[in-house]
Design a protein around this nucleic acid. Sequence first.
DNA 1: CGGGTTACCTGACGGC
DNA 2: TGCCGTCAGGTAACCC
Length: 273
Amino acid sequence: MPELPEVETVRVGLVHLLGANAVIARVQLTRADLRLPIPPRLPARLRGQPIRAVRRRAKYLLFETPAATLLCHLGMTGTWRLAPPGDERAHDHCYLHLGDGRRLAFRDPRRFGLLDLIEPGAEARHPALAGLGPEPLDHDAFSAAYLAARCAGRRTAIKPLIMDQGVVVGVGNIYAAEALHRAGIRPSRRVGTLSRPRLAGLVEAIRVVLAEAILAGGSTISDFRQAGGASGYFQSAFRVYDRAGQPCLACGTTLRGRVLGGRSTVWCPRCQS
DNA sequence: CGGGTTACCTGACGGC
DNA sequence: TGCCGTCAGGTAACCC
C-alpha cells in the first residue's frame, strides 16, 4: 500500500493518537510470522515500555522505547488502528495494549509487512535499514549531484532507479510515475542519457510530489487509511497513475501504459521524453 | 554485475 | 450467483 507520504501520514496519526505518555502495557501476537518471523522475544521486550517517539525512516515506522525499538513496515496492506473492545478483525496480527486501556491493532491481510525488534544502538546495522538511500526531503543528501553520481555508469531505466530504496527511499510505483510526469521524463529513459538539469528537475519533482501528498494526508486507494481511520485525498491529484488510456491533463494526449521492471507504468508520450 | 522474473499472500474486480 | 483469471501501493531471492 504505502509509499513515503502514506507512512508519514500514519506516523503523524499515531503520534496524535498516542499523545505524550503512552505506555505499551502488553503486546499480543496472533501469529508468529509476516513476511519474516516476528521475534518471539518481542512481546516480553516491549512489555511495560513507554513510547518515547514514533519515527519514520524510508517506508519504515520505528516505535522507540528505552528497552528496544519496534520496527514496522506496512508492506502493501498494513494498517494501524485503534481497536476498541470487540473490534477484532481477520488479519489482525499484533495488538499493542496501552497503559490507558486502549489498544492499537496492526492488520496486514497480505502479510508483506514486517514487525521486528531493534536493540538500542543497533538501528544502523539492522538489515532492513542498513542499505537505505537518503530521505528525498533531505535537500542536502538528495541532490542533483547525488542522483547524477548514482546514475553514472548505469544503463537501467529511470523509473526502476528512483524506486530503488538504495538510491532514494520512499518512492514507490505511484509517486515514481507522478514525479516522472511532472519532470517530463519518460519512465523507460536510460539514466545515463539524462542531463544534469533534467536530473535536477526530477529531484525537485520527487520532492514536490511527495510533499504535496503528505499535505493531502497521503493517497487512499483500496483500503489505505490514516491511523485515525480518515482517508487521504492525494489520489484525486494523480496525473498519470492508473490513468492509462485517458487524456494527459497537461496536453490531452492519450496516456500510455506498459509494464516496466515488473510494475505497471503510465506516461504521456508527448509531455515525457 | 545488473536487470528481468518470480515468489510471497489475500482480496477486489471484471468477464463469462 | 459464482467461478476464474488478473491485478494490486513492496521487497527479496532467484536466474541469465
